[in-house]
Design a protein around this nucleic acid. Sequence first.
DNA 1: CCCATCTATTCGCAAACCGAATAGATTAGC
DNA 2: GCTAATCTATTCGGTTTGCGAATAGATGGG
Lengths: 296, 296
Amino acid sequence: MNIHHLQVLATIAQQGSFSGAALTLEISQAAVSRAIATLEDELGIPLFKRGRFGAKLTPVGERVLHHSQGILELREHIDYEVNLEKGLYGGRLRIASFRSAATHLLPAAIACFRQRFPKVTVTLAELEPLGVEQALQTGQVDVGLVPLPRSEGFKTWEIARDEYVVLLSTAVEPLPEELTWAQLSRHAFVLYNYADCTSAVREHWQQWGQSLQVAYAIKEDSTIVSMVAQGLGAAILPRLAALPIPVNVQVRSLPVTLERIIGAATLAQSPLSPAVQEFLTVLQSQPWARKSDRMF
Amino acid sequence: MNIHHLQVLATIAQQGSFSGAALTLEISQAAVSRAIATLEDELGIPLFKRGRFGAKLTPVGERVLHHSQGILELREHIDYEVNLEKGLYGGRLRIASFRSAATHLLPAAIACFRQRFPKVTVTLAELEPLGVEQALQTGQVDVGLVPLPRSEGFKTWEIARDEYVVLLSTAVEPLPEELTWAQLSRHAFVLYNYADCTSAVREHWQQWGQSLQVAYAIKEDSTIVSMVAQGLGAAILPRLAALPIPVNVQVRSLPVTLERIIGAATLAQSPLSPAVQEFLTVLQSQPWARKSDRMF
DNA sequence: CCCATCTATTCGCAAACCGAATAGATTAGC
DNA sequence: GCTAATCTATTCGGTTTGCGAATAGATGGG
């Protein structure tokens, strides 16, 4: 019994004729006819009722088809296992990530991945979110970690949520455990100067009828944290971006929670390599991971 | 991908060496070596770690084996379906049965079987239980219905239980609904003259400390019933054997129930044909069937 | 070093598979 | 009734795959 013959059987059943199956499988009609004749000879029963209408499965042919489909499915499972294995022997995993994810999330995930797949070469490039997108587009990396959502050219997986927090030096003013909008309105803030974070914060303030005063717009999160530590203002940052927190800086949650979503991204049109697939699995099984594999 | 190669893979895993698998499959060691080499080339991964110790599956080889075993199993399901079909197209089912089962049990079962498998030729021979055994042994029939237990050369399935009852003409004496041993001791009985029924009845009486008086030992159950109807004595018969009951004959259960077990039997060494297998299924799904497929 | 035990490879033959071409069967339309 | 269309079956010749017998290669124990 030959798996290819079973594939022919299944394709005829799907197309409803020998010639249709021949077209689909890109083999000749004669090869189709003979594959089925061979199978019927071997089994000793007719699998199809032939006619000008094409070919229609006999009742026992339908039962044979059912099991044949099981076999074809298991063959795909074997292919999957094999491709997984091949991608994980001498394969590579090129990662790009924005700073806070690279610093606080990826080391543990990469260590875990390396333990499981020691033969895969892992590289990590630290880029801004837009840089991560570019590296994906130019094929320089296989997978990136970025704040979500991204534009249409990417396939994304939600990995973690990062809460926005307020930072203020204790020298300026001691903050209560729970902040009110009134207390926040007394401050001018140091914000990121890149659009995603700023607009998210602006929209949040707006949604809750508050006016946001911005004193500075800074590129680097470590610079923002340093200015706060020097008493130059309060800051609103995602918690991961704020790390490490200086000792004189208080960290408080917002009156109403705002989070940025950190996700993994690949090029939408590219098939995932076995290594990327496994890396995504590892990411999603980290302690800090959101328990969701929802795609944006 | 070739199912035979997967069979070779599974056999090596089982035997622990290429040469062991070659012996089991009755092919040369070279063919085994090349089947695995072909499979490894096709898949692009090593399936075994080879050594002087034989062959040991790689981790991915084990995963491929797992799915391969699934495939081999499904192939057996295909073979089963096909053999079922072949035995049920132009196949035959030769049945032998002792009288009361032939008369009262088999007509409905055969009708049901014929409806499901109209192409199978069904024949029925009515023989005494020992005659049924002989016909099975000489290969003249495929399956027989007999009282159980049978001797060692047969495989049997319990089909129905037939309760022994007392028959007495109303002209002799009216019987209460519930019989006592004392009432039974006043009668001399007409029994079967063949050993199984007689000994079963004797042993039952003995077990309950009663003395059995036998007036006549008759071969045919219809003769026994007729003698009872003529007032020549009481009789103890399995209920099916007593049918049809004349209008002037009372039928009562024994003080303590005694049953004979009716079963289906085939020759122990012969594989069951698909038709016999299906017939056994039909027998066991009849309304009068015991809900058990226990083999003696 | 030699022997035993295992798998790998070569050689030559047989079996299986395939495309192109042709044959055969059935039905629809005129 | 005849022709054309549409389907599957079969033949022919060439290529590919699979096999046993024989041989080669690798490893470990005494």
